[in-house]
Design a protein around this nucleic acid. Structure first.
Length: 321
DNA sequence: GCGACAG
DNA sequence: ATCTTGTCGC
């Protein structure tokens, strides 16, 4: 996989960025996200600060919210306030005063997320929704469960409507969850579990999007190109796009469009399901075949291969995680 | 307060 | 994704 170096060092590089904030200055979650290359990572910034391995060299107390309020702190907000005031920062009514003057902006960063976007653009060129999966009998569903920093990836293998195998692999999480960059977190896990699958599935259902993505390169599509296998993306909530027509018991399928372009379908199956799932081609599977195949495997809201994988991965996490 | 960004 | 008891509803 391209950009593996970035993935391995992403967290370390982030903590180095935080260490650049000098005493007497502050920055915001969003500014740090921008320094990483994409403001969408603001919440991931908060999560990583929360996992700060060394508060001595990584001054996460100097990261506050864009409205001047302090935000969270591992040892409590009072401790954060105390540390900031000790560094000469004025706080009134829980807000930092004279914000602009002490805002640290000039981070020395190579903006790793910008590079990852470039990788996505390159991979996207290789995505195809042409039918190359042929006659489908063997289907795999994959899902990943987390107990930081461990990741448990489970594969559920089906042949002719019957589950024939199910197993889990364990590895370290190297990259945080950042919306639209999910592939860089889960791809290593999914590739590892899929390489061990025997026999090889004709098609893989992934817990995440395919081309239903702002850059048309979600996890399922990225995985499909990376391993050169047919894939389908199945998401439980909507990442982007508009559901054209309301889905209910009578209208179980609706197109999802983004900038007027078809990028997937909302599908409501399973008698107890209230909200739809969001389905899109990953690689080498057309839109109609994607929707048809997913519906066929929906006993409940989520297609069975993914559901079984999901339950098993969670079980493994709770057992030895 | 609303809207909201896969896992 | 994870943190988490009981509870409401089909």
């Amino acid at each position: 996989m391209e950009g593996i170096g970035i993935l391995r060092n992403f967290r370390k590089d982030f903590y180095s960025l935080v260490s650049q904030i000098p005493k007497g200055k502050v920055t915001t979650y969003g500014r740090l996200a921008k320094a990483l290359g994409d403001k969408i990572a603001a919440r991931a910034v908060g999560t990583m600060l929360n996992q700060n391995p060394d508060p001595i060299t990584v001054p996460c107390h100097r990261v506050i919210r864009s409205d001047g309020t302090l935000g969270g702190y591992g040892k409590g907000k009072e401790k954060k306030k105390e540390l900031l005031e000790r560094e000469g920062i004025d706080i009134e009514d829980g807000k930092v005063i004279d914000f602009d003057d002490i805002l640290h902006l000039d981070f020395d960063s190579d903006r790793p997320l910008k590079k990852l976007r470039q990788i996505q653009e390159n991979v996207k060129k290789k995505v195809s929704v042409q039918d190359l999966c042929g006659e489908v009998s063997k289907i795999a569903g994959v899902d990943v469960s987390y107990s930081y920093p461990k990741a448990y990836s489970t594969l559920s293998l089906w042949d002719d409507g019957e589950e024939i195998d199910r197993f889990t692999v364990e590895r370290e999480t190297k990259f945080p969850y950042i919306p639209t960059y999910l592939a860089f977190r889960e791809l290593p896990c999914l590739i590892e579990v899929l390489e061990k699958a025997e026999p090889k599935p004709d098609i893989v259902m992934v817990d995440g999007n395919g081309v239903l993505h702002p850059r048309r390169i979600g996890l399922a599509s990225h995985l499909g190109v990376e391993m050169d296998i047919p894939t389908i993306g199945v998401a439980k909530t909507k990442l982007c796009g508009d559901v054209i027509e309301k889905v209910d018991k009578d209208h179980r399928v609706s197109e999802i469009r983004y900038d007027g372009e078809l990028i997937g379908h909302a599908i409501l199956e399973g008698s107890r399901a209230k909200n739809p799932i969001y389905v899109s081609p990953g690689h080498h599977v057309p839109y109609d075949k994607t929707a048809e195949l997913v519906r066929k495997y929906c006993e409940y809201k989520i297609p069975e291969p993914i559901r079984k994988a999901h339950i098993e991965a969670k079980k493994r996490r709770k057992k030895d995680g």
